[in-house]
Amino acid sequence: MTIEKAYMLISIFLFLSGLLGVIIRKNLITLLISTELMLNGVNLALVSVDRIVGGIEGQVFALFILAVAASEVAVGLGLIVALFRLRGYEGSSEITHLRD
């Protein structure tokens, strides 16, 4: 068990915690934050893999993930604002108008 592998485990922990966050959080904003948590976990994983295999592509990938995360957050927050405008503030449990 090297320290990089330990970091890998932490990264998985972060990823799964993000998933858990998406599952349990009520607030739309916190949902978004949880997805960021997942991406952070992925980044950590990439960096630790970089260390293990001895390369730099992981970090490059992580950089792109940062960009992607940023754009998702931007759109997501835009949507949250739009939702708020249209209906007043809604929790995630209430965005259930589209359903079977």
Partner: peptide, 18 residues
Amino acid sequence: MFLHLRAELLAGLQLIIY
């Protein structure tokens, strides 16, 4: 952690972007 893993660029960007 990034710093610890010697990914300095990423650590910086993490701080800046996030």
